[in-house]
């Protein structure tokens, strides 16, 4: 800059006329301005702009794009919030493994140690492997003192979601807020004593009287239809034997037998389908109830 100025002064002294002086001055100032605009020029891809655009996308729930912006930003800068959001984007779009890996990186030497541990556990929980979640949630390095209640609650909720043995009622209910206790107790009871129908009982009942198993399962009209169908076929068999139509007699006997055994089979199947319905409704109710409350986790971490 200084050398350039010297050159200009020199040139100015050479220029004799005032117009020339003015022109040189103009040229100098102008070239300086161009240089100024060029260096001040807006850079869409500077790390800072990447970060603010990333945050904007994050709030618009456009997570895949947001995480790309955070990734680019983090190549140049290191900021805990950005790193956390980067991981959270993975969590929100269902890439739980990547989310967990990135939250893990914030466990130590960061301002978000507690949040990242909770979010890590959330990623483990959402990934659906509840057994591994439960074992991790009980290890000290993964738990956070600040969010111990949240983690404890999530730990107990998982017991409603798979076939693990339910913990003792006192511990189970104590972690939930009072306003939710009656609902949670209801879920606990439904889980502990589901209103299942026993397929074997259904089959045995149908063995005693055709259709009785179906009536036990709740399919009353199906049960009565089987009773009538089996009854009519048996009657026809008897009738034909009585009139010594042996072929027809055996034919109807065969059909009656298939109808009888088929009904025993069908009653057991109907009981299983009934149970699948009970389980579906329970799982669905649990899911809707806790998802609505975001599993008692904070809606936004910060």
């Amino acid at each position: 800059m200084f050398i350039e100025l010297k050159v200009v002064v020199r040139l100015l002294s050479y220029a004799k006329k005032l117009t020339w002086k003015f022109l040189f001055l103009y040229f100098f100032v102008n070239s300086f301005l161009i240089a100024q605009t060029a260096s001040n020029d807006f850079n869409f891809f500077s790390p800072l702009h990447r970060l603010s655009f990333g945050n904007h996308l994050y709030f618009e729930r456009d997570y895949l794009r947001a995480l790309n912006e955070f990734r680019e930003y983090l190549k140049y800068e290191n900021q805990d919030t950005a790193r956390f959001r980067f991981a959270e984007c993975f969590l929100r779009i269902g890439r739980y493994q990547e989310a967990a890996d990135n939250f893990k990186g914030l466990f130590y030497n960061s301002t978000l140690q507690n949040e990242s541990r909770l979010a890590y556990l959330e990623a483990q929980f959402q990934s659906g492997d509840l057994n591994s979640f439960r074992s991790i949630a009980r290890q000290d390095i993964y738990t956070s003192a600040k969010y111990s209640r949240e983690i404890e609650r999530l730990y107990y909720i998982t017991h409603l979601m798979d076939n693990s043995t339910l913990p003792d009622t006192n511990i189970f209910f104590s972690v939930f807020p009072d306003s939710n206790k009656s609902n949670v107790r209801n879920f606990y009871q439904r889980k502990k004593h589901p209103e299942y129908k026993n397929p074997v009982t259904a089959a045995v009942l149908s063995g005693i009287l055709p259709g009785l198993g179906k009536i036990y399962v709740g399919e009353i009209s199906d049960g009565l239809t089987s009773l009538i169908a089996t009854g009519v076929l048996t009657l026809l068999a008897f009738d034909n034997f009585k009139q010594s139509h042996n072929f027809r007699g055996w034919l109807f006997t065969g059909l009656a037998a298939i109808s009888y055994t088929g009904n025993i089979y069908g009653s057991a199947a109907a009981a299983q389908i009934y149970n699948a319905g009970i389980k579906y409704n329970f799982d669905n109710d649990v899911k809707i109830y806790f998802e609505k409350r975001n599993y008692f986790l904070p809606e936004k971490y910060f």
Partner: peptide, 11 residues
């Protein structure tokens, strides 16, 4: 392309 249009809109 959508990402870049969104970036343009944002700034």
């Amino acid at each position: 392309a959508i990402t870049e249009y969104k970036r343009l809109l944002f700034y």
